[in-house]
Design a protein around this nucleic acid. Sequence first.
DNA 1: GTGAAAGCGCTAACAC
DNA 2: GTGTTAGCGCTTTCAC
Lengths: 359, 359
Amino acid sequence: MTRRKQSVTIRDVAQAAKVSPGTVSRAMRGSELVNEETRKHILQVAQTLNYTPNLSAQRLSIGRTLSIKVIIPFFTRPAAAARLNGVVNVLAESNYDLIIHNVSTPEQRRTCLETIPTPSQVDALLIISICPTDEEARRLAEAELPVTLVDAYHEKLTMHHCVRGMDVWGGRQATEYLIQLGHRKIGFIGDRVDTPFNFISSRDRHLGYQQALETAGIKPDAAYYRENDHGRKEARASAKELLTLPNRPTAIFAASDTQAIGVLEAARELELRVPEDVSVIGYDDIEVADIVGLTTMRQQLFKSGEIGIQLLLEKLDHEEVNPVCEVLPPQLTPRHTTAPPQPSNPRCSAVPPDAPNTS
Amino acid sequence: MTRRKQSVTIRDVAQAAKVSPGTVSRAMRGSELVNEETRKHILQVAQTLNYTPNLSAQRLSIGRTLSIKVIIPFFTRPAAAARLNGVVNVLAESNYDLIIHNVSTPEQRRTCLETIPTPSQVDALLIISICPTDEEARRLAEAELPVTLVDAYHEKLTMHHCVRGMDVWGGRQATEYLIQLGHRKIGFIGDRVDTPFNFISSRDRHLGYQQALETAGIKPDAAYYRENDHGRKEARASAKELLTLPNRPTAIFAASDTQAIGVLEAARELELRVPEDVSVIGYDDIEVADIVGLTTMRQQLFKSGEIGIQLLLEKLDHEEVNPVCEVLPPQLTPRHTTAPPQPSNPRCSAVPPDAPNTS
DNA sequence: GTGAAAGCGCTAACAC
DNA sequence: GTGTTAGCGCTTTCAC
């Protein structure tokens, strides 16, 4: 442990400017209680001495860490990255540091939520796309610092802000759209429901899917349901199963765009035309959806991050604010992978989805 | 400024365990100089008291911040995200905090490199994909903390580690591949060279492109060069210009996969077949390249982040290490958007690139 | 092996 | 307005 000292401290500046450390401190932080002349002089001296305040000391002294921790799984996935981008964007204009904790294994997920940070570690906590278990919610409820959930929810956490995406409703919208187009045999491809990650968006979207079917008087067929690890390749495999069924679905709702891409690949591999032979709808509206012309449910990903962090910053400013639950509805975004089902199914050579709608 | 105190401090633990704060500190940090009995007892007490050390105090006391700052432009772009992922992944196993500074405007870029952080702010600095200007390099050369550059370079910064990607070589490889296929009219679409961001990878790849042409005895034609803001739409516009030229190129090398996708879209819009009418090669090998079956130069993005941060951590451990310059060669990854040029150019309906090679 | 005490650099009362 | 001073919570010499 090399315990090195700082080269130039507030005391050095004070000495050089012939004032006291306290005055330097006041001058640096823009306190009103300091003569305009001396302030200028002090800043000048600080400048030439190349002084920068010691953050740790500052933080220790004011009793706040000036940093916010964000927990997010698989932050490189486009949808997660978009959310995180909203956070980063807002935080860039504050003087809070962003401490990012990526979660890519169940183990990481567990340890992350096992011990809630204390105010001596970070000032606030933003949890994105991770649904607390009951036990974790219990601990989160007693957190000593402001917490906000984005794309996550727990009924017991009414004391914290949350930002949600209406996954059930969105799942229903997507499915109803397919039904309106005339489809009755509609497959669903989503994430595994029962994993240590406890992701719930896919499950919720499937719930909406079921609601839509029931409302339309269509009996959900278990054979049309597939869950798998999240990913394009995995979804592709699942889709191949569905599309080679004796009585295959004429449309597939994928719980995410990434998975929908897998479905498109499966269709192409099986020489099924999209949307003539099979319609495909995704969820999120990440860039690749636009690229391949995928019909999808657009989520306000960037905005969810922005709002989440804004709520948190607000809470840091005014101790007493009522918790709100911001809800961001998804929006049906039709492109070129959905159409009414065709009576016949001629087996012909693969044809791509139409060109993307890049207006 | 609400200056709140910590609920339970090291002193509380000491008192409860009937030892001195010093001993608690030693016990917590696993010092050898403490009786095994007392250590256990202390940890036990700390546990029940729910004690967590105050990071700011710890940092101030040991004179290190235990955090590393990474500066990265547009971290949500797939290539940048992959690099960052490598960093995050390695750092997750250390006890350093990652402080991420995204750069999305020239202004942010400027301020970020204007004042080099001091050891009192962060312990080390990782700069990704930002090429310092001469002036910035001068300042970086005098940095008081370890610095590593990833996907960036400056000749004067030989005192710092760097990780590079052989962009010139890669650009030449890509172009030579097209030449080998028989192309002689080869377009180039890249980023703007002269921007405040000072990105150089596109420029370097273009350099390699020129070298390849010259070696093959092909005179570079300025009409076949387009630079534009980075982005799919922008590249699409540029590609449309090239592909509607009276004597249009039969192949296009795009400085990134994102831009290559734009080229594909332009081709489709103009009803040019890929690869029959026009070959397209990209750079990076991000996921979408696999999805659309794009031929590209694969970069070791994730690895570049891993190595960059590892070099930095090493430097933090052993003060005196010789700076190294790790070089990661890209790899030609042929897929389905490149082929020998065809003698005739029949104008027929659009056909997609072949199915991706998703083995 | 453990306690006492002197900082680490800064801020915020409190005097004047 | 400005100086003085007492912490913030922790680590680490230095005694014992």
